[in-house]
Design a protein around this nucleic acid. Structure first.
Lengths: 239, 239
DNA sequence: GCGACGCTTCGTCCACGACCGAAGCGTTCG
DNA sequence: CGAACGCTTCGGTCGTGGACGAAGCGTCGC
């Protein structure tokens, strides 16, 4: 009984379109200001302020003041994980009601490449995971994964020496179900490191106003050479 | 943007107290009739019928007619997993707002022992997992677990020969964060088998109207001898 | 067949909460 | 110091959707 109440409170918090849009905008782990969130939820600053207060009160977001701005971020990785989990269900369940507005529910740019909290997702993220498995750098199972011996060397070559990382195996490397591709991409510490490395190499650039990730010209070359991926081909044609 | 909408729809579905109570009642994987669910959500049959229609429409529940009854169950293990995930967040987040009604949000019986979809949870479930780890039957990590070699023999002894199971390792055995104990218990195929075995041995009895699990007299002996647990001591005193 | 039962549909009522504009408060910049 | 800016609070409006009783429809049991 009572835990149903708690459950409903979490659900209700996520269950408003404006709040869900804010949460989804924050899902890449960056902090956004109140007005940026108001804009991305398409509501007035006054309305947004109320929503944000509720989300902070409910423990979903944490906030820090900085000058006259107030920055919000998802309060913890657990919460981001829960939201991702809900989006997986949402994307899986939606096709059920077919008599739906025609607008695609997932924007092409996000489907192509985006961040998922702190690692890469979308077609790029899934492709990367596939390539790493094919090259036997990592072995992925349903619930966990690990880096192979030869994989450690490969990663060191790629600029990610793993020696410094304390725990070597689990939690470190973990599959994460991609809600647009519906296949796993790489998460965990390794997923985050890979994402950072790709950004450091100048292969990808995070958009400032969305979770979308742009693949640079260098990235197109790099992803093709190292992973055999045609990442960002669409973007290249577009610009 | 648009995926925020889908997210909010899932949230809104769970975000009503009556529906959340129904979902939470169904979270042990059993099917319940519409009137049982109406009762457990404390609403009239008419109201319950409306909620159930929305939950089925939204893909959260599946329904089967059987005579003049209609039985509902959680549509998939993924959805049950998502709900559990939300409850973990809910139980973790609630203490944040202290100025709360005094009633404990988790009933003692559920905290003691309950089912979590198809395996054991609560103090009993967590204790069982601890004991199996201590006896080196299974090795649990943050995201996955596996049965040890000696563990296979132990389990066979316990009445669970694993030879017949196809996939041997992962997904088979998996930790699941317990929302009342906030520590992992055993899930996955192995968790379900253990739960079935305990019921077959007459150690536990599932209550007919809740997720609570009662430990029988035989169970108290069995859990103590095999696992060193004082399971059900509270119940024993009570009756 | 008739009544009891389980569930659903319909009509109505009501309350919660989402929304905005206006005003207030603190910070930053010229 | 005053103006612009970012955010929050307040007050008021409005719509959605959750609640129930009554009535309708199928199923079961005597």
């Amino acid at each position: 009984m009572s835990q149903g109440l708690a459950l409903s409170e979490i659900g209700a918090l996520v269950g408003d379109p404006a709040r869900a849009n804010m949460l989804s905008a924050l899902l890449d782990g960056r902090a956004l200001s109140a007005s940026e969130l108001a804009w991305s939820a398409r509501v007035s600053p006054a309305t947004a302020s109320g929503h944000l207060a509720r989300l902070v009160e409910g423990g979903m977001l944490s906030a820090v003041r900085q000058g006259r701005h107030r920055y919000f971020r998802v309060a913890s990785a657990d919460i981001a994980g829960m939201l991702e989990h809900m989006m997986v269900i949402a994307s899986r369940v939606q096709p059920a009601d077919d008599r739906r507005r025609a607008t695609p529910r997932i924007s092409p740019a996000l489907r192509e490449a985006r961040t998922c909290y702190d690692h890469l997702a979308g077609r790029l993220g899934v492709g990367l995971a596939d390539a790493l498995v094919a090259r036997e750098v990592v072995a992925l199972a349903e619930e966990a994964g690990e880096v192979t011996e030869s994989g450690r060397a490969w990663l060191a070559d790629f600029g990610l020496p793993l020696d410094r990382v304390g725990r070597t195996r689990r939690l470190f490397c973990r599959p994460c179900l991609d809600w647009s591709e519906r296949r796993p991409h790489l998460a965990g510490v390794l997923g985050a490191l890979l994402c950072q490395r790709c950004e450091a190499l100048g292969w990808i650039r995070r958009e400032h106003d969305s979770r979308a990730v742009a693949v640079t010209a260098a990235g197109r070359r790099g992803f093709a050479e190292q992973f055999g991926l045609d990442a960002g081909a669409a973007n290249a044609a577009g610009r």
